[in-house]
Amino acid sequence: MEKSMFFIGIGPPHPLEKKIQRIKEEFRQKHGIEGAFRSKAHITLQMPFNLSVNSEKDFIHELKKILIKQKPIELKLNDFGKFEPRVIFIKVDENEELDLLQKSVERFMKRFQVFNGTHKNNGFTPHITVAFRDLKKPTFHKIWDDVKNRTFKENFLADSITVFKHNGKSWDVFEEIKLDPQ
């Protein structure tokens, strides 16, 4: 049975995405790292999972059903954080609505036999990754020293959920599900 890899996230609006892209570009130019370019800027709600090609349409249909009454969520980005020694990210302020949305997605995923919602029991730490994968320890520390005191403050209205699909090299938008503004 043929399978594809997906993940579910929330992407910032285009102007903010471009601002985050410039940070990734800065790291690529200064340090030669490119791992964060494999996907658009996003907050992960469900980490990567495999899904049968035959189940894709049903999956999207059922996901839309659980999101039908989900209201957009105001999110605040606030400076930089890290998962030492391999990930540097933009922090998302604590948000009860976002936590409830993630738990709802996690419960939904169990219906499709996906159980990795809180990888290694680390819980849900919403963030937007700006450097990872090809980030080695010495480079990690150089970048962290550069950003640990840097200010990054932005707000945005999360008014859609995006399902990303892996194309073999990077992640493409597979389906964007608009949230109910009512």
Rank of each mutant, 00 (worst) to 15 (best):
I20E: 06
I20S: 09
R22W: 07
I23G: 05
I23M: 11
I23C: 09
I23W: 07
K24E: 00
E26R: 15
E26G: 04
F27Q: 04
F27V: 00
R28A: 08
R28M: 08
R28Y: 11
Q29R: 13
Q29K: 13
H31V: 00
H31C: 02
H31P: 02
G32S: 06
E34R: 13
A36E: 00
R38G: 01
R38C: 02
K40H: 11
K40W: 07
T44V: 04
Q46S: 05
M47I: 08
F49L: 06
F49P: 03
F49Q: 07
L51G: 03
S52H: 13
S52Y: 13
V53R: 15
V53M: 12
V53C: 12
N54T: 11
S55M: 14
E56R: 09
E56K: 07
K57G: 06
D58S: 14
D58F: 11
F59T: 01
F59W: 00
I60E: 03
H61D: 12
L63F: 04
L63S: 08
K64T: 04
K65S: 14
I68L: 14
K69W: 08
K69S: 12
K69G: 10
K69V: 02
Q70A: 03
Q70I: 01
P72C: 10
P72F: 05
L75Q: 00
L75S: 00
L77P: 02
L77I: 03
N78R: 15
F80H: 03
F80K: 01
G81R: 14
K82L: 10
K82C: 09
F83R: 04
P85W: 13
P85D: 12
R86D: 13
V87Q: 09
V87P: 04
I90C: 06
I90K: 00
I90T: 02
I90V: 08
K91R: 15
D93H: 08
D93M: 12
N95Q: 05
N95W: 01
E96H: 11
E96D: 12
E97K: 14
D99Q: 12
L101V: 03
L101T: 01
L101A: 05
